[in-house]
Design a protein around this nucleic acid. Structure first.
Length: 683
DNA sequence: AGTCGCTAGTTTTTT
DNA sequence: ACTAGCGACT
């Protein structure tokens, strides 16, 4: 089978055909980036007969990886695409660590800690460090500073020698202490955090260059998506993976770099040409998404950033319909105007709600829109809510699974030891923690070896260790969902929920639904992964949120068919597109956000966020702002965003929406009627 | 162990 | 205006 590249434009085709050596693809918004790289991969496999096992494509999110996988298999037919590695940075590194982490002194069945787990260890570290509660330090600040250091490849020992450390600063001293304590505990618990996933892989490659060579040889062709979002660790990782060859193709858009706040470093893409001399640079500037009037606005907005690679998007789609900016009187006006407009669009223009998005800078804005949508009974979905595994009750069960996977995971053990209540409270726990230190063992062994330190508790402790042993046996001998069901039954978890929420039965029911959903997830996991569906693998995939089908990554087709308005932040909108976009809160102190306006900070990231929002729209773009907004209980005057203020005339129309609602009640009613009729016809 | 009242803070998020 | 988190109390 031959894959034809005739459907690609010239630069796209050049990008797909340039397979050897370093390539930088600067892909503007809507320029067919994913199409180009999926064709590139298909071309390599089908036309150039490159073994798929030699090809590695790396993305940031599981969603992006999944989409790429699906699109390549659609081109190649699923059998030929087999063997390709398409993975997130984290999933790739976990895979490497699962094979090699013994080289760094960890055991193979390590657990992965999330932010909550990190904070628990930092709390302990601060307890040891100061006598008063947290000593006036903020755990979150310390956690993010540790993450900041790890993302720059700095170990606890190195920290005091770096410019990030001020010996005069009590805060830095506390951070140094916590970082040491933290790393030591993590090692003892045989646990690693999200940053370690990358950090340790690099350490592995630094200490064992033959391993770097091994993986570089294995992956002879490497592609990195959203390269503008890579951080220092990811850069170094890529350097190791390309130590034997320079077949590296990176794709990105410096204008869409919006993750600086979590360590992404735009200079990775800006300096690519210096870092990889002789690289080929290909610009994709033809936009297939938006009308020219939307692109003109986008081009002028982003041109306000002077530190960027120059490019200008153009499109063949012409229209008289210019973007429009609405000045609203209040958040209520803003929400009502948007919702009425959606209603009108839906009922008179026959538009589909899945093609409508409301985009906002911050989650605090969403409530007003949610309320109006509910009042008008328009179906909607909010992207970016709490994930299933972040819910407390799911985390309880996960703690059991983590502990069974890795009995050295003391944090997990401490979480489950008294869930459900089995009379092992803080006092007892302290005794065993002391014993653990004295006998130089781990907490679980301390429980097992000395069940009757307090004769009153001996029965409880033996019941617990017996349960653990039974469950270890269950998970070894039965299928994952069966063993999980046994576990939930044995610990009487549903009764525990009833007990915990005896005054709020509705909440209790919700929690039970969540636990049931988690059990179903385990079922689907086994159906998908078959004999590979071990406890160890399950725990890993849940933490990395890489289950093949949870709510968020459910069937793409199903999602598209859903007649629902999408609400999400500008950040989560990156990579997506909609016919009709309401970009709300385009006002000072929201965009640019007040918090981003601290002195000396660069507002360009906020500007790029504005650009990302504008370029999501295919046909119709509405930007709104409020002249007055209720904030922390007070009404405050507000102005249109500076990003829209300083532009030349004629890029957008302006409408005054300060009068409450623009439809008469009769008009609104008639739209609503038409709307419901449509709904019924849909069914 | 559970409830009460005070204080401080209220951007973005993936893995 | 609202709430999360914490210390103090029962």
């Amino acid at each position: 089978m031959i894959i034809s590249l005739a459907g690609l434009n010239r630069p796209q085709r050049q990008a797909a055909e340039t397979v050897e050596g370093p390539v930088l693809i600067l892909a503007g918004a809507g320029s067919g980036k994913t199409r180009t790289i999926t064709y590139r991969m298909a071309h390599m496999v089908a036309n150039l007969k490159i073994n798929p096992k030699q090809i590695l494509a790396v993305t940031f999110t599981n969603k992006a990886a999944k989409e790429m996988r699906e699109r390549v298999s659609a081109l190649l037919g699923s059998s030929k695409g087999r063997g390709l590695t398409i993975s997130t940075f984290h999933a790739l590194c976990v895979r490497i660590l699962k094979r090699e982490i013994q080289n760094l002194g960890y055991h193979q069945k390590f657990n992965i800690y999330d932010t909550g787990d990190q904070l628990a260890i930092i709390r302990e570290a601060l307890n040891k460090y100061t006598s008063e509660k947290d000593g006036g330090f903020e755990r979150k600040t310390i956690q993010s500073k540790i993450s900041f250091l790890k993302n720059r490849g700095i170990s606890p020992t190195e920290y005091p020698t770096t410019p990030y450390y001020d010996p005069e600063s009590p805060y830095d001293q506390a951070i140094e202490h916590c970082y040491h304590y933290y790393q030591e505990k993590m090692r003892f618990y045989n646990a690693i955090d999200f940053d370690d996933i990358l950090f340790l892989t690099i350490e592995l490659f630094r200490k064992h260059p033959h391993l770097a060579k091994h993986y570089s040889e294995k992956y002879n062709y490497i592609m990195i998506d959203e390269y503008q979002d890579t951080n220092g660790l990811q850069f170094e990782l890529v350097t190791h993976l390309t130590c034997l060859h320079k077949n590296l193709c990176v794709v990105g858009d410096d204008d869409q770099a919006i993750y600086g706040f979590r360590g992404a470093d735009v200079s990775n893409i800006l300096n690519f040409e210096q870092n990889y001399p002789n690289c080929k640079v290909i610009k994709l500037e033809e936009n297939y998404r938006s009308t020219n009037s939307i692109l003109q606005l986008a081009n002028k907005v982003i041109a306000q950033n002077t530190k960027r690679k120059d490019k200008t998007l153009f499109s063949q789609k012409n229209t008289d319909d210019r973007p429009v900016v609405w000045a609203c009187g209040s958040t209520e006006h803003e929400a009502e105007s948007v919702v009425e407009d959606i209603l009108q669009f839906w009922s008179t223009d026959g538009g589909h709600l899945s093609e409508v998005a409301i985009l906002y800078r911050s989650k605090t804005q969403v409530a007003a829109f949610e309320e109006q949508l509910r009042l008008s009974q328009i179906p909607y979905k909010i992207i970016g809510g709490q994930k299933l595994y972040e819910k407390k009750e799911v985390k309880d069960i996960m703690a059991y699974l983590s502990f069974l996977n890795n009995p050295k995971d003391e944090l997990a053990l401490r979480r489950i030891i008294n869930i459900p209540h089995r009379g092992i409270g803080n006092a007892t726990l302290e005794k065993y923690l002391a014993l653990k230190t004295k006998d130089n063992t781990d907490l679980y062994q301390a429980f097992k070896n000395n069940p009757s330190v307090d004769p009153k508790r001996a029965g409880d402790i033996q019941t617990f260790t017996k349960l653990v042993e039974e469950m270890q046996h269950e998970f070894n001998s039965r299928s994952l969902p069966e063993a999980l069901g046994q576990l939930i039954e044995k610990i009487n978890y549903f009764s525990f929920i009833d007990q915990e929420y005896k005054d709020a039965p509705k909440q209790a029911e919700k929690k039970k639904v969540d636990v049931n959903m988690f059990m179903q997830l385990a079922e689907r996991f086994v159906q998908y992964h078959k004999q590979n569906a071990t406890l160890n693998y399950f725990v890993e995939k849940i933490i990395l949120q890489d289950s093949q089908d949870d709510e968020e990554h459910s069937d793409l087709d199903d999602d598209l068919k859903k007649n629902e308005v999408t609400l999400m932040t500008l950040h989560s909108a990156k990579g997506l597109e909609f016919d009709r976009v309401y970009f709300v809160g385009a006002e000072e102190e929201i965009l640019p956000h007040k918090k981003s306006m601290a002195e000396g900070t660069d507002l360009n990231e906020e500007l790029r966020l504005c650009y990302v929002g504008i370029t999501r729209a295919r046909e119709k773009l509405v930007l709104t702002y409020c002249k007055e907004r209720k904030l922390y209980g007070k009404n405050v005057r507000r102005n249109k965003s500076r990003f829209l203020h300083n532009l030349e005339e004629g890029l957008f129309d302006e409408k005054d929406r300060t009068v409450f609602g623009h439809l008469s009640p009769e008009e609104a009613e008639s739209y609503k009627k038409k709307f419901f009729q449509g709904l019924i016809e849909d069914l």
